[in-house]
Nucleic acid binder design. Structure first.
Lengths: 336, 336
DNA sequence: ACGTTTTCTGAAAACGTTCTCGGGAATCGT
DNA sequence: ACGATTCCCGAGAACGTTTTCAGAAAACGT
């Protein structure tokens, strides 16, 4: 059935040790003719080394794990893609664990990653304070946090400045003439959602404004959640002149709810989000949003992880990537 | 750092064998007190067995692979989700390999899966005739094909009837009064794309119609591809009164192109696709499409795989799941 | 009280690799 | 021609589990 290194050795008339040496690119100290024979045997049998046996013997698996709250969220699937691309370049393969946006799912995923003995982990946690992540560190597994900073752990981190983004977007809307900005929040225990909310509040305060009464509702970062949140908001129609959603997916859900009710965007209500996921530019009107470089976040996180693994000098490095305000057509140019 | 079964054994004052027995649910022949001591030691050390060592010793890894052409395509991410859900229920974990829609990527992924010694594979191949898949069978690895049937292999398969779907949708459009249906094709070597195209041709022939000249263009199942294809089509504007795309993602890309050109759907042009991905119902007008039960396909494929592994009586079973025509608003009710 | 069965547990051999030794053959320097 | 290097390669011990085998201790039947 499956051939082992012994089969190859036998066929080539050498010892397993030699086969291993040939395959692992030990260039020197191998007679060309021997190498030739081994490679031919490998070829003929279609031999592929057993990764699990390799991992057991070498003290590393060559696998890094990425813990994501929701892979079907385009933002994270882009981030993962960034990780994968960089990982491949370094010879790692990636194991994706989806926590389904649930703390229990996250704990399960962490155990799975520990059992798999991954060499490192890139995590965007559901909760900002998951202490179970400490397990990685205590077992000497490199850990890098992407996108969502943790409160209790000082580890390398690749993020954006969510407060600044929230502030930036809100200021933009205020500058356009909007004054009563409804807000659809994200999960309250993620730093991302919290940061954007904080920035929003800051900007309002600067204009001596407050969130309109009853026009702040909670969501869960999904399209459906945004849709439901918007429906709740619409009961207070008139209390606000624009909606800011804590991410694009919810903004799109809101857009759907508005269209359902026949409310024109941006003519009757402004709408904005965060992330600039591909779909944000596919809809009409093109969503005004803040572009978060998800792919680059993943890529940089992987780079940091490699640095951690190589030089285990754990000088904690944080990288904060720049973002860009994307002016779409979902907020009208100016009020007058 | 990482604790082994020996550490646990030592701490509990028993042999590794006993620890293993306790952990693997060998209920009988273990003194309750011993079990107690072992479990406490496991608890205290936070011991988690090494999956790789386990896999090496037992002759199975408990991992099944799924080979998908493009995980960022919502259709496949839904399919994978179906696989995952069912797999978890059977105690399997899944390893996702994305071939990036490229034959070379697929070959690489197959090798990866072979090296990982997965217990089984669910594959939706890029090419209908990839002979490299035979390797799985020759190594005794269970193989189930999902969504895209293969031409050269007789293995368990879960599909829909693409020809029927293409026929069904086309008939629907013809019944609405459309007569000159442009077509955006999918990758020519996938059975899915081919089947839908075939069904489309069948339906046209029944009405003594032909594809409008110059209004058949090729695409690659992506949003961007659909967008570009539509732009090409628009050079022949007037030669057709509706566009059928071989999947929803391309239809959405086309929708974007039409909007860009200020062409109203469905007033000036009809538009339809296949799959009924979530986004098809998020846009305006709601896409007319044929709903393919991606999640169920994944789920059923996993069920078949389990059946294969258990009873290696390889009685090939094919399952063809029903589909449903979803009448949206992207095709006008009737022509008059 | 003495075989016989039933419970419980440990020693040790796998699983498929890699890697450290060490030893034989070839090459080199003189 | 002969010690000293330099090349090449095999034996065998790991890596962390599971599982077979067998043996000791306890329970049982007479």
């Amino acid at each position: 059935m499956g051939f082992t290194i012994k089969d190859v050795a036998e066929r080539a008339g050498v010892s397993p040790a030699t086969v291993s040496r040939v395959l692992n690119g030990q260039q020197r100290y191998i007679r060309p003719e021997t190498r030739e024979r081994v490679l031919r045997a490998v070829q003929e049998l279609g031999y592929l080394p057993d990764r699990r046996a390799q991992a057991l013997r070498r003290r590393r698996t060559g696998v890094i794990g990425v813990l994501t709250p929701d892979i079907s969220n385009p933002f994270f699937s882009l981030l993962v893609r960034g990780v994968e691309h960089e990982a491949r370049a370094h010879g790692y393969s990636v194991l994706i664990c989806d926590s389904q946006n649930a703390p229990e799912g996250e704990d399960r995923a962490i155990d799975a990653l520990l059992r798999e003995r991954v060499d490192g982990v890139i995590v965007t946690s559901v909760r900002a304070d998951n202490t179970k992540l400490l397990k990685f560190l205590s077992k000497g597994i490199a850990l890098v946090v992407a996108d969502r900073p943790l409160t209790h752990l000082d580890v390398p981190t690749v993020t954006v400045d969510n407060v600044r983004d929230g502030y930036k977007l809100t200021k933009h809307l205020l500058a356009l003439g909007y004054e009563r900005l409804a807000f659809i929040q994200g999960p309250p225990d993620t730093a991302t959602a919290l940061g954007r909310w904080t920035g929003y509040l800051q900007a309002l305060r600067e204009h001596d404004l407050e969130p309109p009464k009853g026009a702040v509702v909670s969501g869960d970062f999904t399209f459906e959640g945004g849709y439901r949140a918007a429906k709740r908001l619409l009961r207070r129609l008139g209390a606000f002149d624009a909606i800011v959603a804590a991410n694009d997916l919810m903004a799109l859900g809101a857009l759907y709810a508005l269209r359902e009710r026949g409310i024109a965007v941006p003519d009757e209500l402004g709408l904005a989000g965060f992330d600039d996921i591909p779909m944000a530019s596919w809809v009409h009107p093109r969503l005004t949003t803040v572009a978060i470089p998800a792919y680059r976040i993943g890529k940089e996180a992987m780079k940091l992880l490699c640095a951690c693994v190589r030089t285990d000098a754990d000088k904690v490095r944080h990288r904060v990537l720049p973002t860009r305000l994307v002016v779409g057509e979902s907020c009208r140019p100016s009020r007058r």
